[in-house]
Amino acid sequence: MVGIVGYGAYIPRNRIKVEEIAKVWGADAPSYKRGLQLREKSVPSPDQDTITMSVEATKNALKRAEIDPQDIGAVYIGSESHPYAVKPSGTVLAEAIGATPDCHCADYEFACKAGSEGMFVAMSLVKAGEMKYALGIGADTSQGAPGDALEYSASAGAAAFIFGKENVLAECLYTHSWMTDTPDFWRREHQFYPSHGGRFTGEPAYFRTIMGCAKALLEKSKMKPEDFAYAVFHQPNGKFPMTVGKRIGFKTEQMEQGWLCPTLGNTYSGASPIGLTSILDVAKPGDLIFMVSYGSGAGSDGFIFKATDKLPGVQNKAVHTRAMLDSERRKYLDYGTYSKFRGKIKLRGE
């Protein structure tokens, strides 16, 4: 049996509301909230980035896995906001958790599905018997250009999954990947903010790709949407994942636990992985979980997990994802502080 033996998430404390962003740009907040089904988003502090959030998410995963970090044979961080252009994020993480030096490491990029790529490869290496444990992480401190629609959703968070064969919490039953060359969202070299194709990011990109992957995964597994207790999809806004899920045949109640976007925003590579951690926080033995990520460019990774009887025993060994999301310590920023925190204000000498 191969699957998740430890999982954890990290969500920063800061938030900004849609109204605060809309006020600055003269936009109509109610129509954005209705259209995006989004109320607020997380914002990293100036001292937080993909590496720091990945470390904290992994520490939570290690609390649940209770393994020796020296047994982790691979570390893969998927992100489109790696702090360095040249120098891996994974080396810092592996050093911080004590997994060095006998460890394979790579940073992945594939827009918002870089995290599920890391999970896919980590799981496959364990399945192949190449190593005892492997770590896959999705994390981002995503950016949207000031005034762009993306600015209302681009947020920050991380999710970490340790894969192994012993004491499995959620067995990975099936996987499938589906991709085409679809230029719906991109960022050229040396550009600070990404560009996107507006409405082209919807039907021919997000919906076609996720549905293609989901359909193939259901055919491969010979399962139906009603067989699953939970489903989670990539969440660029609150509307898309619910719409695509219903088109595939899932019901609202199957998707609500992993549907974090309305108050978290779009954590890019972290989006569906963080949703999965929220599901694992409450899933019961035998529950089937359907997950399909999406990365612009464009592709999807699909997974079917089955919760085991080991899961309830570790759910409370680390902080729950919903507890971080709904924390009483949330701090709401004004747009000026948000701009300073996100490096949108250029200081003298920069």
Binding site: D47, D49, I51, T52
Partner: peptide, 10 residues
């Protein structure tokens, strides 16, 4: 908690 402490210029 693990955080970025400082950065050496740009």
């Amino acid at each position: 908690e693990f955080r970025k402490i400082q950065q050496e210029g740009s």
